[in-house]
Amino acid sequence: MMDKETLINHCLDALAKGEPIHEILARYPHEAATLQPILVVAESLAHLATDPTNEARIASRRAFLRQATTYQTRPALWQRLALWAASVALLILFAGGGLNMGG
């Protein structure tokens, strides 16, 4: 006798292959009361739509693009520091270039 988990897996495999629930239950009459609700739910879940509708895809894409147009990237820390250092260097260069350092 197989354990419950193995039995359920066998039944789910049979259901996935297209075998009707009543035939699966007929093979395991001693477990039919336990298996039936599991198989009914599994069959119901198999019929749910797994792909979004075209309308949902379009709405999602529009929302993404709308958000993407308002998104502004902020420079990385090293970029801000490099810009700051370059600004300070230019300030020193121009300020120092106007000074008479000797002579």
Results as ranks from 00 to 15, higher is better:
1 M>E: 13
1 M>V: 14
3 D>Y: 00
4 K>H: 11
4 K>R: 15
5 E>Y: 10
6 T>W: 01
7 L>V: 09
8 I>N: 05
8 I>M: 10
9 N>H: 11
11 C>N: 05
11 C>Q: 02
14 A>N: 05
14 A>T: 07
15 L>P: 00
15 L>K: 02
17 K>V: 00
18 G>S: 09
20 P>R: 08
20 P>M: 04
22 H>Q: 05
22 H>I: 06
22 H>A: 03
26 A>L: 06
27 R>G: 13
28 Y>K: 00
28 Y>W: 09
30 H>Q: 15
31 E>V: 05
31 E>K: 12
32 A>R: 07
32 A>C: 04
33 A>Q: 08
37 P>A: 02
37 P>S: 05
37 P>Q: 00
38 I>T: 05
40 V>E: 15
40 V>M: 11
42 A>C: 04
43 E>T: 08
44 S>K: 03
44 S>Q: 14
46 A>M: 07
47 H>G: 12
48 L>A: 12
49 A>Q: 14
51 D>L: 15
54 N>K: 13
54 N>C: 10
54 N>M: 12
54 N>E: 15
55 E>K: 04
56 A>Q: 14
56 A>H: 13
56 A>W: 08
57 R>H: 09
58 I>A: 15
60 S>T: 12
60 S>V: 02
62 R>E: 06
62 R>L: 06
64 F>N: 13
68 A>K: 15
69 T>L: 11
70 T>F: 12
70 T>A: 12
70 T>H: 12
71 Y>I: 12
72 Q>T: 14
74 R>E: 04
76 A>K: 02
78 W>M: 11
79 Q>H: 13
80 R>H: 07
80 R>A: 09
84 W>R: 09
85 A>E: 05
85 A>W: 02
86 A>C: 06
86 A>Q: 03
87 S>E: 03
87 S>M: 09
88 V>W: 07
89 A>H: 06
89 A>V: 12
89 A>P: 00
90 L>Y: 14
90 L>S: 14
91 L>F: 14
94 F>V: 14
94 F>Y: 10
97 G>M: 10
98 G>T: 03
98 G>F: 00
99 L>A: 06
99 L>C: 01
100 N>Q: 12
100 N>V: 04
103 G>L: 05
103 G>F: 01
